[in-house]
Write a protein that binds this DNA or RNA. Structure first.
Lengths: 253, 253
DNA sequence: GCGCCTATTGAACTCGAGTCAATGGGGCGG
DNA sequence: CCGCCCCATTGACTCGAGTTCAATAGGCGC
């Protein structure tokens, strides 16, 4: 509702309110001539631009990243996207079967970028890998601020596919951070306690909540330098790394 | 879409497809006679039942708790709610200005119940209070299964008010669990490190993710007893309690 | 028993998601 | 170089869920 003001502003001249009752035109009926001036008038009239499929898709996903990062899922309307992209609403449905599918594609892209940034070369030893990975993670969250929170949480449980994408991202992320760690643990029960996977999933929740709180603190201390100073990224990273070690340690008896 | 089948099934007789173009009837126009048999026919015709405001509100919130706990926010339609409650759609708007407001009211109620259950008497010493509180928490999450996850996460960032309710609930919950704990810590910097609040907020995320993963494990092991057995609630509780202690310890240098 | 207050109703309205037949830009075979 | 076909693109349309509102009726006070 707050964003209604920035909607396409419904051209006052055209018949927006006139609602005709007739059904869809007959399939073979004579083509009705296009209404008024086809390309005259406003500067916003854009010639039909034909793009390659991948190009167009990439453009739309990029736009979606920006829009969904700023507003909520429901606040972003298809019309808004189409207008911002300079295309018709129908074309969006040529690339994505549904609004949710479009959203899922955007989340997928965001997740892929996050994971790409966290790709630490395999020769790095486990503990350092964890630290470097966490640094990259915090860097990303810091840089993308609210977009991260919105993308990963807003409507995360709205459908199965979305939940699957988020879960998979979390699992991959965890794998990146902990690969090779099995060696450095005392391994009494060969890392097979029923508590372990639960503790690990829990730790991901810790990482997300902590990083979001940290970014909020950063923003707050920028706005009001008098308030509590935001902790340094390295401290947050150490907190998370130590918590992971402790959590695994406790989960294995 | 999966739930379309259980919608009010649009009485086939009435003119659902006829779409009139005329505007709303004139304010003082002669009252058109009510359409066909006012109370005859089907057994489902229910006399107008007049309830007290608080009663009706409570009934609707109770129903909302059940519906929103089962399906997603968008999957729950106002028509569905109205039909299930045996009232007209319009009446819902007499009690809640909007669907979101209705949802917020339901989340508020769920949060209140959770917090009520976690109310441990003040004479209980801090550490035991933490343990008992966590037990109650896990009990609640276990008992309300998906409802908890859905209510606390689905569309949690959809609007400011919802986020505020969730944040406030988390803060209160944390307060319940940690009240009196300031005494038992070495308190070098008087508990005032900029990391502390962030670590605490993070821990709440840990608690939520861990408990959700635990419930999932419980459900999975019920369905397939051959798979990994779910850990006991006490173990999860200890894991969370120890994590909280360790997190606070680390945050204070 | 009358009248008012208000819970309750249902139909109309809004507006955004999703559909579809028609269009036309441009690459390619002739 | 021309015309033909493919497919990206369009815009009007349908459909359905949320929201509004004037009218109705239950029951309590007087």
């Amino acid at each position: 509702m707050l964003f209604d003001a920035m909607r396409p502003s419904s051209k006052p001249g055209s018949a927006t309110t006139a609602r005709s009752t007739r059904r869809r035109a007959a399939p073979k009926g004579p083509p009705p001539p296009r209404r008024g001036k086809p390309s005259a008038g406003k500067d916003e009239s854009r010639a039909r631009v034909r793009l390659d499929v991948d190009e167009r898709r990439a453009q739309l996903v990029e736009l979606g990243l920006a829009e969904f990062g700023t507003r909520t899922y429901e606040e972003v309307s298809i019309d808004l996207i189409a207008q911002a992209a300079g295309i018709s609403k129908g074309l969006l449905y040529h690339y994505f079967p549904t609004k949710r599918a479009y959203y899922v594609a955007c989340v997928r892209e965001a997740a892929a970028r996050l994971l790409a940034r966290m790709d630490v070369p395999p020769e790095v030893p486990p503990l350092e890998r964890l630290q470097v990975g966490l640094d990259r993670y915090l860097e990303y969250v810091r840089g993308h601020g609210g977009a991260f929170a919105t993308l990963m949480r807003s409507g995360a449980f709205a459908d199965r596919e979305l939940a699957a994408v988020v879960d998979e991202t979390r699992a991959t992320l965890l794998g990146r951070l902990t690969s090779g760690m099995a060696d450095i643990f005392p391994a009494p029960g060969m890392l097979s306690s029923p508590l372990l996977p639960i503790a690990l999933q829990g730790w991901v929740g810790l990482a997300e909540a902590t990083s979001i709180a940290w970014v909020e603190a950063c923003v707050a201390s920028e706005k009001a330098p008098a308030s509590a100073p935001a902790p340094r990224a390295a401290d947050v990273r150490d907190l998370l790394a130590q918590a992971l070690i402790a959590l695994v340690h406790n989960a294995l008896r």
